[in-house]
């Protein structure tokens, strides 16, 4: 499923990131990459999400959140 459809408070494994290269680099620097686990902390207005990766809270805008495929752990 895509990240924006994930459930709040649950842990997920990142399967695929099909965003553009610039956004992929941004995500990578923040610790979001393939096979990384994350937790969905909250959903924000407009389709964006807040995720928690390695104790950092990260806001991911709608357009990028729709391009991250995750699997529930």
């Amino acid at each position: 499923m895509i990240l924006s459809k994930a459930e709040i408070g649950k842990d997920y494994l990142v399967l695929k990131i099909s965003a553009n290269q610039k956004d992929k680099i941004k995500l990578y620097k923040l610790g979001v990459f393939k096979m990384q686990t994350l937790r969905l902390v909250n959903k924000i207005a407009g389709g964006g999400v807040i995720i928690s990766v390695k104790f950092s809270d990260i806001v991911v805008g709608k357009n990028v959140a729709e391009k991250i495929t995750v699997e529930k752990l």
Binding site: D23, L30, I58, V59, G61
Partner: peptide, 10 residues
């Protein structure tokens, strides 16, 4: 505008 991806403070 560009896509927003950023760390947020505690």
């Amino acid at each position: 505008t560009e896509n927003y991806v950023s760390e947020i403070a505690d």
